[in-house]
Design a protein around this nucleic acid. Structure first.
Lengths: 211, 211, 211, 211
DNA sequence: TATGAATGAGAGTTCATTCAT
DNA sequence: GATGAATGAACTCTCATTCAT
């Protein structure tokens, strides 16, 4: 609600913007490590070196800080992914990029992106505002996959009994589903195996033309 | 420290077992509604009518109560599912039963089972003890699916390029993945559509023999 | 709202009741000294030796503690005054007792009662619940004075152009009005002078028969 | 440290004086509505449209702002009343004007003056500087009433057993006393009844000559 | 002169837990 | 075995104030 800090255009604002950025990154790390529900102001303060009262001054309430951190993380991720996908011409390459990128977010020891995603879902279950953010993010991922799929079908690269929208839903479900297992260190799902099984399933479902 | 739930056989224990059972059911409802992190002793006390100090007397710490509630819920669910699956002869029927049962746990307005599952994963991300419970539960589901799949492959009912273990991983991922969308009221995934898309994907992946 | 503490009948309750009583007396002292708006939990805790969290356990919110303290003080005072007044037969003696008792509440160095009264009014200006308590207390004082006055008029002891209800309003206004001056250490109103002027005014207004 | 309000004579100061004036009026409204103890910088900023830091720049600390607001209000009121009183020749008319003016300050729905007076007393109970302001104001009111009374006695218009100083004390006590009841919406004291009872009491006490 | 940025101090409230019965 | 009483710890939020333009 309160947004007193300049996002960083003017000279004086640059420093404020910089601190806000650092606060958001710190908040994301805290959320990933402890979970959104256990992310306290004092944790973010310790992680960022910014006083608690300053965090409150920047973001308002605790909930607003969490929302801002989630938003920051998803925007950063989505922007990068969309750019990369568009730079690839082949639909199957686009799909594999998306899948690998998503699963890489759960890489053991470097799973911040994946954990943030999980926390975002969870938080969205009970927070109205977060929920609409999550829905919007999913719609972007969905469109990305559905478009690649439709293009693959059109061009004859893919042959599938499912619609492109169904493929998008299935793909996202697969990625979230294996992500959970990876994040939970499930012994039945290794990182390498996760990438392989997801790609194998999509390859089969899409009937990818070998040529 | 933690006590396994008294099922209520001994004479003096019968009433205590009854109360514990009610406490666990109440705890599950609270967890599903508010989330494990926000589930307070006082919430369970209000929901069950049992005083806070009695809950502590029965279960020990807050964490122990949550663990017991999760355990109670997953045991109840698994016992039922395993029985039902074993009563079915056809592998595809077994798979469809498992899939439908899982997705039904996210039925809008009656999604206690699904929400408990989500909370269990999440809690297991940061709680050592919960995590091994989650792993054990997944291994049961995994075995159930892998066995049906192996039987289907052996009998020629299924024709697939994936191993039965991979099918198990994919199936569970799909179910969790669509469950998340349903639990989050995602407008892109309706309940009916979720059942359909999961079955369509599995049907395609398993190359189910039409006969 | 919460009233978990026995008021002190049973053996175990006696101690709890005792502590609550001490908390209320301490709260009254703090209110008199610092003012209701500045009366903090920690002040009452320091004054009474009871931990803050125990005060909250006993009374609930800060507002409830203040209300309870005000109520405790006014009940104690009113009970005593009503008893004393009834024990006096002559209307003028009754009136003088009330007036002197009220003004004595502002005795320099021993003005707890007077200050509590002032804080009660003030708090009642903005607190709904306090306000009705204040109204109720005033109605008791009013009735007391009006009855004495009516009796004096009936018996010929008083001769006045004002109604007994008007005399009650005037008397209470006078007492509050001089009380304010005394509480504020106004150099124009000394304690002795205050008693004198109030009695002189009432004597004149009531046309007290010299006999 | 505290600056007397710039009335706005110097060229550069005129605008600043205007803003200060508006800030003081806004502060008075806030004090009347919420009470001095609950009057925050941010409330006055919202009420006046002047930034918090500017208010601090103009007035210094919070206490200084409150003092300035009280001073502004009482000066405005006193100046007007003194002028009006002096324009009246008859002592009883002077007294009635003072009484009516005071009670009118508690007119329901338009009781800013009355509430400010109450807050001023109260604040003066614990603030040294405010207290001397209050004393000074009371001395002005006192002199006004005592002079009218003395003139009335001298001219034979009044016949009373009380001294003119006592009449002043009684009058002010009456006015404050009924003001409290009015401000507190006491059901036993209506606005019309308050005016009537005060005038009746003074009429009786002063033994006003009917001629 | 005027104002936004930043921050320390403090307050109420929640809650798990300990203790005594 | 069961439960009410009591309490310390932690957390969010408010607010006056200081600082840097």
């Amino acid at each position: 609600m309160r947004e007193p800090v300049d996002i960083g255009k003017s000279r004086s604002g640059r420093r404020a913007g910089r601190r806000k950025f650092e606060a958001l990154e710190a908040a994301a790390r805290v959320i990933a490590e402890r979970g959104a529900d256990a992310a306290r102001f004092v944790d973010v303060a310790d992680e960022s070196g910014i006083p608690v009262s300053s965090l409150q001054y920047y973001f308002g309430s605790r909930e607003d800080l969490l929302l801002a951190a989630f938003r920051h993380a998803s925007e950063t991720e989505l922007t990068a992914v969309v750019g990369e996908v568009e730079s690839r011409g082949d639909p199957w390459e686009q799909i594999t990029f998306i899948a690998e990128d998503a699963v890489f977010g759960y890489r053991p020891g470097d799973d911040l992106a994946g954990r943030i995603r999980i926390e975002a879902w969870r938080f969205g279950l009970r927070d109205e505002e977060m929920r609409s953010d999550v829905h919007r993010d999913y719609s972007v991922w969905h469109r990305l996959i559905a478009q690649s799929t439709a293009e693959g079908i059109r061009s004859g690269r893919f042959t599938t009994t499912l619609s492109s929208d169904q493929i998008a839903v299935v793909t996202l479900a697969l990625l979230d589903g294996v992500g959970l297992r990876l994040a939970g260190s499930d012994p039945l799902v290794t990182f390498a195996g996760a990438v392989e099984v997801v790609l194998a399933a999509l390859h089969s479902l899409l009937g990818v033309d070998a040529s």
